[in-house]
Design a protein around this nucleic acid. Structure first.
Lengths: 250, 250
DNA sequence: CGTGATATTGAATTGCATCAAGCTAAGTGG
DNA sequence: CCACTTAGCTTGATGCAATTCAATATCACG
């Protein structure tokens, strides 16, 4: 469609040009209440819908690059996004996954401190800072919600810091499976038993500070010990939740 | 003074009972502009001063415990605080240091997700959530500043996640020295050359996901290679900043 | 059905932890 | 003010969990 030399963000399609369609989209958005926009009353929906632009990204497309001017705040409405920090020599650390209802942004307008890439096909709302500011100056609850969510994010990052600094490979993988299952629960009925991991072994390894080989070995040993079973297309079934929790180590 | 069986937080002395004294303390607070209260106009100082309580903690005193109801938000005005997460089996990870001008709080009122301990003697302002809410509903800039600061904190946590997951022991220590020096710059004139680390090797190790032995060995090798020299009472002098930056690995 | 991407498994290596000893410096009480 | 004490730090020897290197297996997709 576009040449490869185009800036990546241009290859995402912006959807829904019609005002009415935009508002409708917000009012029946599945993430209406869980995401930060949930702090807004229904009366604010039109202003909300006109304050944001929506975009889709295909699996593996880059949403923003580390270092570019960080003007936008992104709210994930479907799919999974990974936030990556990497060093010149090629080492990469995924500093977070964002699932529907969660947002990400750079701390300053200056530049993004991570690269954001779509792990699956992704739908996303984008807000510029002036747009957000206009919204929260009219509805202060919005800002309060954003603050609360960023504090919650801080806490989950702290948990991840403990994992990275102090847990063994086995504990890391077990913790990851349980945490991810919890976070994306209600995807299907028996959500705590059968989960569908959208990410590859490389992505899991980069999130846990391990190598793919180690992740793979741990998966194998968890299967051998009857804690999980892995199905097709990266699905994982929890066979012994109690044992898995014990293996997660806290 | 009190028996050992008293709740730890009671052993901190609450200072400044007089209203006038409280306001004066805020108006000449060294952290007035750097900390989140800096978002308030001078006209708000009296309300600010009456909205918070001040406390001192001695070196090594516990400020809050992981698991207690998380009602307060703390703003450090002098000294250094460490935030620790630990597992039942005794492993500990310091998830952050807080220096003057920085705050910490639990994400929900429910409970703190970390234990906060004074690394040095500490002075601190405490706010309850209703107090804060009253402040930011009158001065929305306060909330905006809190949000901005928590986003900045998120970013520094992400950097720490890269460090924990992907850096070598040597890179970890070098990065820590440089980052800490930057953060506490202007402590003295040539702040980028001579820094005074208030934390022990144990605390550095628990922050970097290492053991004390490894931290010690890395310090020794950095000294041998002429990058730093260590003086009395945990002071560190940077001898070759460029080499140290290279050793920090990005 | 073939082909490149992704995952598993094995063997060898290594960076850091663990275990163990000695050292240094900051208090502390006689 | 000095010996004693102890918390904090350094250094060495050894072990092991995770990485690295290498080969093969399996999956997803045109």
């Amino acid at each position: 469609m576009f040449g490869d030399e185009m800036p990546v963000s241009m290859t995402a399609q912006t959807v829904g040009a019609q005002k009415g369609a935009q508002v409708a989209e917000c009012s029946r958005c599945a993430m209406r209440l869980t995401s930060f926009c949930g702090a807004l009353p229904n009366g604010a929906l039109e202003t909300l819908a006109l304050s944001r632009s929506r975009a889709r990204f295909n699996k593996r497309q880059t949403i923003v690059c580390e270092g570019e001017p960080g003007t936008l705040l992104f709210n994930v409405t479907s799919g999974v996004v990974k936030l990556i920090r990497s060093s010149p020599d090629g080492r990469a650390q995924i500093v977070g996954f964002r699932v529907p209802g969660e947002f990400f942004a750079s701390p300053t307008e200056e530049k993004y401190t991570f690269t954001a890439v779509a792990v699956t096909d992704v739908e996303i709302c984008r807000f510029t800072r002036p747009q957000l500011k206009r919204l929260w100056s009219e509805w202060p609850d919005l800002l309060e919600r954003l603050f609360a969510m960023s504090c919650a994010q801080l806490t989950s990052n702290e948990e991840q810091m403990f994992l990275l600094g102090r847990k063994t490979a086995r504990e890391k993988v077990a913790s990851f499976l349980l945490t991810y299952a919890n976070r994306t629960a209600c995807d299907n009925q028996d959500s705590m038993r059968l989960i569908n991991l959208p990410m590859t072994r490389v992505e899991i390894a980069d999130f846990l500070g391990l190598t793919i080989e180690t992740v793979s070995r741990v998966f194998s040993s968890l299967v051998d010990e009857g804690m999980i079973s892995v199905g097709i297309s990266r699905s994982v079934r929890f066979m012994d939740l109690q044992a898995l929790s014990r293996a997660a180590g806290d």
